[in-house]
């Protein structure tokens, strides 16, 4: 992954585990299959003859469009996962994400109020975890998904130690 324009120069990004793609795939399947199934209901009704007012092409186009959109998202997943990165600097943690809509977030260690480590069912199966940092601002939303459990534990300890050393007021 080449560095993007808004990445601060000279940052060595640590990437999340490639197996996180699997987690995203499972989420994708659950989310998008449901959506496609939902949008297929009109088609079914038209085919069964219950709905006559809806033209057939529209009834087909709805789920087809949904499906194409889902495919597009599917194609993006590996790149999105590769775009997630984090870097520990001396005084703050950098988190980046996104390809089209990029975001680089910096959280000073002294501002962290607490660190959450959460593990979902799929993540547990793959030995991954998600680390979430909380500051006094709800807008921060700093999370690093798809960390290997060992790396997650290391990061949590590291962040905690650094946060403690640099703890500041509000």
């Amino acid at each position: 992954m080449p560095t993007e324009a808004i990445d601060p120069p000279g940052i060595q990004w640590l990437r999340v585990s490639p197996t996180y793609v699997t987690v995203r795939l499972v989420e994708w399947v659950v989310g998008n299959l449901l959506a496609v199934a939902l949008f297929s209901v009109p088609l079914l009704l038209v085919l069964l003859g219950a709905w006559r007012w809806l033209p057939l092409w529209l009834a087909v186009a709805l789920p087809a469009g949904m499906f194409l959109l889902a495919l597009w998202r599917l194609v993006l997943i590996p790149r999105q996962v590769r775009a997630i990165g984090y870097a520990e600097r001396d005084d703050d943690l950098l988190i980046r994400r996104g390809i089209f809509f990029q975001r680089v977030l910096v959280v000073p260690y002294g501002r962290m109020q607490y660190v959450d480590v959460s593990v979902g069912p799929v993540e547990r199966g793959l030995g991954l975890c998600t680390i979430k940092l909380h500051t006094a601002s709800v807008a921060t939303s700093a999370q690093i998904p798809g960390l290997p459990a060992a790396e997650g534990a290391r990061l949590r300890e590291q962040l905690t130690a650094r946060g403690e050393a640099r703890l500041a007021g509000l």
Binding site: F101, V106, V107
Partner: peptide
């Protein structure tokens, strides 16, 4: 008072 900061860029802005 700065808590954290983010740098954001969308496709058009890029």
């Amino acid at each position: 008072r700065t808590q954290s900061m983010a740098l954001q860029q969308g496709p058009i802005a890029r």
